Simulated assay, not measured.
Amino acid sequence: MSLLNTEIKPFSATAYHQGEFVPVSEETLKGKWSVVFFYPADFTFVCPTELGDVADIYDEFTKLGVEIYSVSTDTHFTHKAWHDTSETISKLQFPMIGDPTGRISHNFDVLIEEDGLAERGTFLIDPEGKIKLVEISDGGVGRDASELLRKVKAAQYVAAHPGEVCPAKWKEGEATLSPSLDLVGKI
């Protein structure tokens, strides 16, 4: 069963954020748009390139009222150590959630149980706590933060404009579609 349009499941965790350890739960994510960005492990190869890419345009997400939460099955202590020793990871301004039990990864159906690691999963959650975007990539395939930002803008547009949808490659300010019988076979 797809997680799309389901409510996020309860969880409680600790994140490393702006030099502190902070509690995070499903309630933390509600009330605003959130991106939950799972990755396999700290101190690895593709993962820092992805997190650095998100960090480079983090301000664009916050302008849209979106908070980013990165999650791996590492502990919050490991996140701090990585943040303190990596030039790329030291740029992160968003919370890095530790999921050493794998509960959050399991809740989002990205846990690789035999390895105790998370898949590269990206989830966009609306202010009501409903999952509006699900994207899972193979471990060797890094994600693109600018494409994620485009999808966030499209999801926010659709949420604010019932009856309209965003076509492929839609960018903010471009034309949308209003599905109707008149459009069938004309696109």
Rank of each mutant, 00 (worst) to 15 (best):
T88W: 10
D126H: 10
V165M: 12
I131F: 03
M96A: 11
L64E: 10
F77C: 00
M96L: 15
T101M: 01
G98P: 03
I68F: 02
F38M: 09
H17N: 08
I125M: 12
K130D: 14
G65S: 00
E135K: 15
F21E: 05
P162T: 10
M96Y: 09
D182L: 09
E128Y: 06
D53E: 04
P95V: 05
C47Y: 03
V36K: 05
I112C: 08
I187K: 08
F45Y: 14
D42F: 06
P95R: 02
K153C: 11
T176Y: 08
V66S: 12
K80C: 00
L133P: 02
G31T: 03
F61I: 02
P23D: 13
E67D: 13
S86C: 07
H161W: 11
E7K: 12
V184M: 12
A145V: 12
K153E: 14
A55R: 09
P10M: 11
Y16K: 02
L111P: 01
E147S: 12
L181D: 13
E60G: 00
G98K: 10
R103K: 15
E27N: 15
E135A: 12
A81W: 00
S86P: 01
L3N: 07
H161K: 08
G116W: 05
K63H: 03
A15M: 03
L183E: 11
H17E: 02
T28R: 09
F123V: 05
P95D: 05
Q93G: 15
E113T: 13
L133W: 10
M1I: 15
I97W: 08
D115Y: 15
D144R: 10
T14N: 07
G31P: 07
N107I: 12
I136Q: 06
I68S: 07
S72M: 08
V24Q: 07
I68K: 00
P167I: 00
R150Y: 04
